[in-house]
């Protein structure tokens, strides 16, 4: 068991090394970090020429939405592109022959490659999150500065306890939005969604003959996954009132496609609404179990694949 884990880790580290030494991914990562930083500029666009103290709420919303949106979007591209060419490249270059001629099981090989992608995504999300934290910090500084400027217009403001109370309230409000611990929850959920996307791509690549097919199919499943909730509600509600064909199609979507839309609870977290950790753990648990199922099916299909 230990030796199997060691082999998986060895292959995982090798996959990560390969990805890190690839220029395409580096460019994508740099671009994403820049875009996270640019969310600050976009927030200025949203409230042009207005007093930024009073409209901090709108600006910080933009920074959070765009920052996390960039992490999600670029993470999606990195997950999709790096996973889709994982198996085809090994088959095309035949490097898989040399590895499988060693005492390595096919399942260990597959899990090792996937581990490499997970490590890559973790690294990318961590770096992008650091950039995001930096933009939040910068926005906080701007907000505090503007608030202070608005109050210090009256030189005697500190002697009036009501005004001081108002100032403290405004500062607390700014801190509450920029230092919200729920942001970590949001990033974890984004990461879980990326891992699921990667696992879907891996599953398809175990039987697909080209990377393009894997990329297109995974993207479609990703989109359909955001409507799975609607399909599921429809399927469960409408037993006998629809044709077999319709029922079959909707049923197929409900039974097999993951509910990607449930991860958009991240929008709620970023809007400042309270989403308890118990719900986040529920979602993360769902993602974990789904991941295990996808990996198990991938292993079965890959075990029997002609190479």
């Amino acid at each position: 068991m230990i030796s199997a884990l060691y082999r998986i880790l060895t292959i995982g580290r090798n996959t990560l090394t390969e990805a890190v030494r690839q220029k395409v991914l580096n460019v994508l990562l740099i671009f994403s970090i820049v875009l996270v930083g640019c969310s600050v500029l976009v927030s200025q666009l949203a409230t042009p020429g207005l007093d930024s103290a009073g409209l901090f709420d709108a600006q910080i919303k933009f920074v959070k939405d765009f920052g996390c949106g960039a992490i999600g979007l670029f993470g999606f591209f990195i997950a999709l592109l790096s996973t889709a060419q994982l198996i085809p490249q090994e088959l095309h270059n035949r490097t898989i022959y040399t590895i499988l001629a060693k005492p390595v099981r096919r399942s260990e090989f597959l899990l090792g490659k996937f581990l490499g992608v997970v490590l890559l995504l973790a690294l990318c999300v961590a770096l992008m999150s650091l950039a995001f934290a930096a933009t939040l910090y910068w926005q906080e500084l701007q907000g505090l500065q503007a608030t202070k400027a608005a109050y210090t217009a009256d030189p005697h403001w500190q002697s009036n306890p009501v005004v001081v109370n108002l100032y403290n309230h405004d500062v607390a409000s700014i801190h509450q939005q920029t230092r919200d611990p729920q942001i970590i929850e949001a990033i974890l959920l984004i990461f879980a969604k990326l891992i699921m996307t990667s696992a879907i791509a891996l599953l398809i690549s175990t039987f697909a003959t080209s990377s393009i097919f894997t990329i297109v199919t995974t993207f479609m499943i990703y989109l359909i996954g955001h409507m799975e909730g609607t399909a599921r509600a429809f399927w469960l509600a409408n037993g006998a009132h629809v044709s077999l064909w319709q029922s079959g199609l909707v049923g197929f979507v409900s039974l097999l496609i993951p509910d990607m839309n449930s991860f958009t609870i991240v929008d709620e977290i970023l809007a400042g609404n309270k989403v308890p950790w118990s719900h986040a753990f529920n979602l993360l648990g769902y993602a974990d179990v789904y991941l295990i199922v996808l990996l198990a099916v991938s292993i079965v299909i890959f075990d029997y694949r002609e190479i």
Binding site: E228, G229, R232, A233, L236, S254, L255, L256, P258, D259, S262, I265, H279, N282, L283, Y286, V289, Y290, V293
Partner: peptide, 16 residues
Amino acid sequence: WAPAKIVWEQRIAHEQ
């Protein structure tokens, strides 16, 4: 997995 998936997703949807 399929039936367990449906049940779990319904639970998540209800919580949301």
